[in-house]
């Protein structure tokens, strides 16, 4: 009862066919999955980039030169540059030592501190604004102290700077912390064996190895300060020339002077873009690469 060879062949074909089918099915499945993913990716990327393009489409190139003489625009740009610069400098003074401390010291309750430092990053800006009011306003927590010196914070340029520091400086702490934490202990120990002074080790090894992270963090903090809106509006107000930074001016110009609003928006988009490019380049650069 041995089956004739033809039977065997048929069986072969039988077993082969479904195999081909499954591989075809999986091929089709593969292609469908890719197509499906592509649709999502393209839709999403368009969603993220189209609004930016929309702003640029609103730009009337012929208007640029006249807009550059628009007092409202110039005032807002100047105020933003000035407040963001001071806020960034204050952030460096406060966040670099703090980040270094958190990265290099062990102490009880460190996780709590770490979490608190991250809080402003996710806190809604409007809430940050209210929180700052309840702290620095004349009736707030620290209000009486400022009152004694005849100082009022909200409604003045100082409030803009405080709002920017509160919202943006945690980005710098995070960067600085990563910059110091990611250093190999053996590198540090090698230096300690070769030189007696811890200060020398800090300035020749630890700090230079963290400098890129510090620069990246500083740029992001600055860009975030330039773009601060909610907390500034709530806490500092929207007074042209005093507290009206670029984002607040854009908000005001939406109906009154849309062309100026577009101009300011493009300035802010360009700043964001340049900062992201520099940060990316800093991340990629390896020591010894040609510049």
């Amino acid at each position: 009862m041995t089956p004739p060879p033809t039977n065997v062949k048929q069986e072969d074909i039988k077993t082969k066919k479904p195999k081909q089918k499954t591989s075809k099915i999986s091929q089709i499945l593969d292609k469908t999955t890719t197509a499906f993913l592509m649709v999502i990716v393209v839709t999403y990327i368009s969603f993220l980039t189209l609004p930016i393009i929309a702003v640029f489409l609103k730009l009337d190139i012929a208007q640029i030169s006249t807009q550059l003489q628009n007092q409202g625009i110039i005032q807002a740009i100047e105020l933003s540059l000035y407040t963001a610069l001071i806020a960034t400098l204050c952030s460096i003074i406060l966040a670099v030592p703090t980040g270094y401390f958190l990265a290099t010291r062990k102490f009880y309750g460190k996780t709590v501190i770490d979490t608190l430092m991250d809080l402003p990053l996710v806190l809604p800006p409007a809430v940050a604004g209210i929180a700052l009011l309840y702290t620095f306003a004349p009736g707030g927590l620290l209000g009486p102290i400022f009152n004694r010196f005849g100082m009022i914070i909200p409604g003045y340029m100082g409030a803009v700077i405080i709002a920017q520091i509160f919202v943006a400086s945690p980005f710098l702490i995070k960067s600085v912390k990563i910059g110091f934490e990611n250093q190999d202990q053996a590198v540090y120990n090698s230096a300690r064996i070769l030189t007696g002074s811890r200060i020398t080790v800090f300035f020749t090894i630890s700090f230079p190895l963290a400098i890129r992270a510090i620069i990246s963090g500083t740029l992001i903090t600055w860009a975030r300060s330039m773009g601060e809106f909610g907390a500034t509006l709530m806490f500092a107000g929207n007074l042209p020339g005093i507290t009206q930074t670029m984002p607040l001016a854009i908000y005001n110009m939406l109906y009154s002077d849309p062309i100026a609003g577009v101009m300011l928006s493009i300035v802010l988009i360009s700043i964001s873009f340049v900062v992201i490019v520099i940060v990316k380049l800093l991340e990629q650069k390896r020591y010894g690469d040609r510049k």
Binding site: D184, A186, V187, N189, S190, A191, R192, I193, L194, T195, G196, T204, I205, L209
Partner: peptide
């Protein structure tokens, strides 16, 4: 630094 030792580490520890 006062112990007059040289130390070569397990990982690459060059600066």
């Amino acid at each position: 630094s006062e112990r007059k030792i040289g130390y070569v580490f397990q990982t690459i520890s060059l600066f």
